[in-house]
Amino acid sequence: MAIRAVSHDERSAFGLLAGLVAVLMAVTAFPILYSLWISLFAVNLRRPLRMPFVGLDNYIAVLSSPAFWESAGRTALFSAMAVAAVLVIATLVAVLLDQEFPGRRVLSACLLIPWAIPSVANGLMWKWIYDANYGALNGLLLQLGFINSAMIWLGDANRTLPLIANAFIWKEVPLAAILLLVTLKSIPSDLYAAAAVDGAPAFRRFVAITLPALRPGFLLVALYEAMMAIRHFDLFFLLTEGGPGGASDVVAWRIYVETFRNLSFGTGAAMSYILALATLLMSYALIRSMAEKL
């Protein structure tokens, strides 16, 4: 390829990009390359003198371990539950906030609260709420008469993942709803006007106009939330540490265990890259499949 002279425009582009490139090179580049490099070695910190280069062995070991695939299954289940629920709830919220009614501003301001809560405080709060002894959830259900005796929440292996997903969903709905609201606002109002003239009932209008128009919003939200859910670590760490009996042992938690509990930095890094690659593939597949329908 012939080397094209750097144009004036390109020079100014590079100038404008210089700050960003400098920051990413100085801060982010090394950690990414380092962890990629480490993933090719059998690094266990307990054996500091024995760290052979093993090529892709760490990756092969991870991918051929049944325990990893069980964790991957849980990650997939958690993410599917979380993304689906966020999409449904956020759509309803966005449609609500798209209406004009008194108090709408207050409502949309309140909606942002979960989004702004620090994850440490969020974990702390849900741990309290779900507590089997003096938690708020049991207290509320008892007082309302829905249950007769205190229920076990996170301690019940069948409920753990959905309950952690609920805490995740609660925090994620606001942003998702806003992204969808933004999309709703961009629907030309004459589309609705035309449908109203045709006398189409509200529900039909929703299905025929709103839902299709929301597709780009759905794509963005699904993409963003899936990326967040797949890599989500905080709640698993703060609420259950992978328990009970491995019921919340997802890949993000496994990476933590490999790295910091087992001190197998090589395996932990390999697992991280597998997760990153899976995230990228999923994003690509999602973009492709949704884009076709657009």
Binding site: F14, L24, I32, Y34, A276
Partner: peptide, 27 residues
């Protein structure tokens, strides 16, 4: 601005955020 590499620039920048933070803590 049109410049070489513009197409991939945004994706390259975003891709730096795909790796789980736990793997990046030590480096």
């Amino acid at each position: 601005i049109r410049f070489r590499g513009r197409g991939v620039a945004l994706y390259a920048i975003l891709a730096t955020r795909v790796i789980p933070d736990i793997a990046l803590v030590v480096p």
